[in-house]
Simulated scan of single mutants.
Amino acid sequence: MTAPVRVLICDDQVLVRTGLATIIDAQPDLELAGECGDGRTAVDLARRLRPDVVVMDVRMPVLDGIEATRLLAGSGVPHPVKVLVVTTFNLDEYVYEALRAGASGFLLKDAPPAHLLHGIRTVAAGAALLAPEVTRRLVGRYAARIRPAGGTPPELPLTPRELEVLRLIAEGLSNSEIAGSLRISQETVKTFVSRILTKLDLRDRVQAVVYAYRQGLVT
Score class of each variant (00 low, 15 high):
D57W: 01
R137H: 04
A3D: 15
I120T: 00
L32G: 04
R141D: 08
L197Q: 06
A143R: 11
T69Q: 07
P4L: 12
L202P: 05
P28K: 01
R47I: 05
V7E: 10
A208P: 00
F192T: 15
L116I: 06
L156R: 00
V209M: 05
A125L: 08
L168W: 01
L156K: 03
V206M: 12
T22F: 13
R100S: 03
V77I: 06
V54N: 04
A111M: 12
R203N: 05
L182N: 11
D64G: 11
T198G: 13
E171R: 11
T152L: 13
V134H: 13
V7W: 10
D204R: 08
E97F: 03
G105V: 07
I184C: 06
T219G: 14
V139P: 05
V14K: 13
L63K: 00
A111C: 11
L72W: 02
P154D: 02
H79A: 14
R6I: 08
L217N: 07
V189I: 14
P28Q: 05
A26Q: 15
P28I: 14
L49P: 02
E31F: 11
R47H: 04
R167E: 15
L15F: 09
A98C: 07
A124P: 06
M56D: 05
G65Y: 01
L158P: 08
R136F: 08
T88Q: 06
D11Y: 08
L108G: 13
V5M: 10
P132T: 12
N90E: 13
D64Y: 08
S176L: 14
Y213D: 05
H79P: 02
L32K: 00
A179Q: 04
A46W: 00
I146V: 13
A33I: 02
V5S: 02
V81E: 12
G140M: 00
V86A: 15
M60P: 09
L130V: 10
Q13A: 13
T88P: 11
A143Q: 12
H79E: 15
R50T: 13
C10S: 15
H79S: 14
L117G: 04
S194W: 11
V206A: 15
V189D: 04
L163N: 11
D204A: 06
P154K: 08
P157M: 03
S75E: 14
D64N: 14
A3G: 05
A212W: 03
V189S: 02
E67C: 04
E171W: 00
H79M: 06
L138T: 13
L91K: 04
I178W: 13
D11W: 03
T219F: 12
V77N: 01
V218L: 05
Y142N: 11
V53E: 08
A26T: 03
A73P: 08
R6Y: 06
A149W: 09
V53H: 00
A208M: 06
L197W: 04
G65H: 00
A124E: 10
R141Y: 07
D64I: 04
V218Y: 05
P153R: 08
L202W: 05
C36P: 02
I9A: 15
T219V: 07
I169T: 10
R214Q: 15
T219D: 15
V53G: 02
L200F: 02
D25K: 06
T69W: 02
A131I: 01
E187C: 04
G39A: 07
